[in-house]
Design a protein around this nucleic acid. Structure first.
Lengths: 217, 217
DNA sequence: GCCGCCATCGGCCGATCGGCCGATGGCGAC
DNA sequence: GTCGCCATCGGCCGATCGGCCGATGGCGGC
């Protein structure tokens, strides 16, 4: 279940989002709030998997809420998808700089909303096509990543991902176990499996793979 | 009606795409072809609104077909969405430079496929979330969503840098020694010093620091 | 000349990792 | 129901790491 928090000052919008998302059997809306202050406090209290934030809100706006929940200096960032009516480059830039895992225009349609939530939960990022086309223009002449992280021979399981992320942060196996409520043996089993799949010789190479493939940042 | 051409060497994939897209009442698949040569000729003959191209195809591959149908030097470019199983940065880079209006991984699911076609038809671009998240990292010089590495309390010496770079690649202390013509003891001394300076608890944290601070990539 | 910093090397020891064997239970596919 | 995959856990052991002590020599500044 992907647990979602919705923040938007318009009640009709909140209701609409809730109906769309709750209709999915892998998504559960755990709260909806009408302003930025409540968004921050509710998010910290409930720690949802994904926060859906409008930009125009009384008090704190969605961009500032994003910074406080997902910004570069936040210890344990949440996943944030920013939603707005206004297609301004400035908004997009700020949102993404503040750690957003997605940027959607409200005219995007339900399918993209759902996919954006799922993508954010997976650690990916979905950006509205109207915006993407403009972002891509900036790439012309620019550099796209050359570092290639070789794909794993087999896909990692969800649990393996959890363990990898923790390991890449520098936690020891015992610490990972404590964080994920696993025994030392289980952590070692998962890491050994990942090691084989991504072709790493030790945990630093696992971390390097995680880094390059965007699993962690 | 959005008129779509499908090019993929696997018949099952073509059928799958056709079923998904034909089920939409605003989309119509006008042709499907199994190789790059036919893709180019059919596309020029039928002039579909959107072309869905696999990369791996006999004859011309999808990236070359993209260039011929949508490249910067083409007079009246068609809209192209590139679809592939393989998540390689090089593919993404080439496809987008060759004028693609979208890049999808085959594991993306029907919803994104449909939205990618609609977006391309509108002149927008949809990119798979897994890829978007990596694109964003390198956008704007990597300032977006990048977590800053705390500066070391004291600057690292040149030799320490050498050792850190090797360690971040996943080499063991013995291997680092062999590479830099140092004894095991010396490598350990340097790494211990770095560990103190950057506030790391183990070599993975040293590696993480190296990545975030741009010492290595 | 002396002092500080750097680079180089050594020994010792406990903690951690990595490789290898094994086992159980759940759960979905065929 | 059986098979396979996944998640969970255990033991054993050698390799490696990390922490702590030490040492020598070079080189530049005061």
């Amino acid at each position: 279940m992907i647990r979602v928090l919705i923040a938007d000052d318009q009640e009709m919008v909140r209701m609409g989002f809730r109906m769309i998302l709750d209709a999915q059997d892998d998504i559960e809306v755990v709260a909806d709030v009408p302003d930025g202050i409540s968004a921050v406090s509710k998010a910290r209290e409930l720690r949802p998997d994904v926060c859906l934030l409008d930009i125009r809100m009384p008090g704190l706006d969605g961009l500032e809420v994003t910074r406080q929940l997902a910004g570069p200096e936040v210890a344990d960032p949440l996943k944030v998808v920013v939603v707005t009516t206004f297609d301004l480059d400035e908004y997009v830039h700020t949102a993404l700089r503040n750690g957003a895992s997605g940027f959607l225009l409200k005219d995007a349609g339900p399918a993209l909303l759902i996919e954006a939530v799922r993508a954010a939960d997976r650690g990916d990022a979905l950006v509205s096509p109207q915006i993407t086309v403009r972002l891509l223009k900036h790439f012309d002449g620019g550099t796209i990543a050359k570092r290639e992280a070789p794909a794993p021979s087999e896909p990692l399981t969800a649990r393996e991902m959890d363990v990898v992320k923790a390991a890449a942060r520098g936690l020891t196996n015992t610490e990972i176990g404590a964080e994920l409520f696993l025994s030392l043996s289980t952590v070692k089993t998962h890491l050994a499996s990942v090691q084989g799949k991504v072709g790493a010789r030790n945990r630093v190479e696992i971390a390097a793979w995680a880094w390059r493939s965007g699993v962690v940042d």
